[in-house]
Amino acid sequence: MTPRLLLTLACALTPGLVTTACAQDNEAQPAAVERAQWPFTATEFGRFDEPWAMTFLPDGGLLVTEKGGKLRHFDVTSRKSTEITGVPAVAYGGQGGLGDVVLHPQFASNQLVYISYAEAGDGDTRGAAVARAKLQLDKAGGGKLADLQVIWRQTPKVTGSGHYGHRIAFDQDGKLWISSSERQKFDPAQDMKANLGKLIRLNDDGSVPADNPFVDQGSPADQVWSLGHRNILGIAFDAQQRLWAHEMGPKGGDELNLIQRGGNYGYPLVSNGNHYDGREIPNHDTRPDFIAPKVTWWEVISPAGLIIYSGSQFPQWQGSGFIGGLSSKSLVRVAFEGENASEAERFDMGERIREVEQGPDGAIWLLEDGKGGRLLKLTPRN
Rank of each mutant, 00 (worst) to 15 (best):
M1K: 02
T8Q: 15
L17G: 11
L17K: 12
V18A: 12
N26F: 14
Q29D: 13
V33M: 00
V33R: 00
E34H: 07
E34V: 06
A36F: 01
T41N: 14
T41L: 13
E44F: 07
F48E: 11
D49Y: 13
T55Q: 09
F56S: 00
G60P: 04
V64R: 03
T65Y: 00
E66I: 00
G68N: 02
K70S: 09
F74N: 02
E83R: 02
V90H: 04
Y92M: 11
G93S: 08
D100F: 12
H104Y: 06
H104L: 05
Q111T: 05
I115W: 00
R132Y: 00
L135G: 01
L135C: 03
K144L: 01
A146T: 14
W152Y: 11
R153W: 08
K157G: 07
Y164Q: 08
D171Y: 06
Q172E: 13
W177L: 10
I178K: 00
S179F: 06
S179Q: 01
S180H: 06
S180W: 06
S181C: 01
E182C: 02
Q184L: 15
P188M: 04
D191Y: 12
K198E: 08
L199R: 03
G206S: 10
S207V: 03
V215Y: 03
Q217F: 09
P220I: 06
S226Q: 07
S226I: 02
R230G: 04
F237W: 12
Q240M: 13
A245S: 14
G252K: 01
R261A: 13
V270K: 07
N272S: 12
G273R: 05
G278V: 05
T286G: 09
R287T: 15
P293T: 11
V295R: 08
E299H: 11
Y309R: 07
Q313M: 10
G321M: 12
F322M: 04
L326P: 10
L331A: 10
R333E: 11
F347R: 05
R352D: 05
R354E: 03
P360G: 13
D361M: 05
G362R: 07
W365S: 02
D369R: 06
G370A: 10
R374M: 10
L375R: 05
T379V: 12
P380M: 04
N382Y: 14
